[in-house]
Amino acid sequence: MAPVLEAESLSKWYGNILGVSDISLVLMPGVHGLLGPNGAGKTTFLRLASGQLKPNRGRIRIFGEPVFNNPGLFQRVGFCPENDAYYRGVSGGDYLSFLARLHGASTQKARNLARTALHQVGLEEVAGKAISAYSLGMRQRLKVSAAILHDPQLLILDEPLKGVDPLWRVRITDLIRDFASRGRTVIVSSHVLPEIEAMTNRIVLIHQGQILAEGDIQEIRGLLDSHPHMVSVCAPHFRRIAERFVGDHHVLTIRFDNVRQKVVFNTDNRDHFFACLNRFVVEENLEIEEITSPDDNLQAVFNYLVGRK
């Protein structure tokens, strides 16, 4: 079986800031999680893999072809960038139709592709609304739909679940798994281990621009279990959410941020915590604006791994 992505001694720096350094990697079909703390080099690697950046040294190939300035390749590749960027004054439906037209679809076919892609991420009802009126989570889902619009063979997703509410996190995770089950390849980045774990057990750990480890997720999982994990939940009724966790043995501390309408939990069992959170949100029909996992703890594990190496 031919590799989907091959990187050889890949290095990229911005002036004197290092992006990635001497990365050599071969990815075969399937779902691959790119895991690392913020600033580890994940985004730089994915920008190189999507042809937005030129390597300073080494090379990167997808389906055996160079990536930079090779537009033909993007008939087979879908890319969801991390940036929360969009064209002002355009609706989600028109935007996706335009992208489908760039893939060579006729006007009618482009509309159909756009409708299907929007349906997959639950945005068909707001297809005619300006993107600027979408919430952060909706814009994130729109970017995912733009990446899968043309049914690519390789999907590159940079932090696709950032800002997405819990219900749609699960659905997008299912979408990615379903996509891969049809023999496609997905490269997905995150600094949140459970997000990656829900999609795949093949991970690439990246830290300070270098690949720290590659392979099965179980080993890193074991290391993380021994570290407390911080989860920040931003919601209008954040105190009600906190209330539900009072007395939970796996929640070590609860801290409020009244200004930002946020509650920060420290838990020693992420799986249990997220399962409870999802249940509470559904049971009480709570509105959640943002869930983030500050990566201080993941950073600690990376530091541990670096030290071990």
């Binding site: 999507s50 042809g51 937005q52 537009p71 033909g72 390749l73 993007f74 008939q75 590749v77 890319f79 960038p81 940036n83 960027a85 969009y86 064209y87 002002r88 992208l99 760039l102 893939h103 060579g104 733009a146």
Partner: peptide, 12 residues
């Protein structure tokens, strides 16, 4: 507006 990526990751 950081939208260039939407155009340069398409087959055009």
């Amino acid at each position: 507006q950081r939208t260039l990526v939407f155009l340069t990751t398409r087959p055009v």
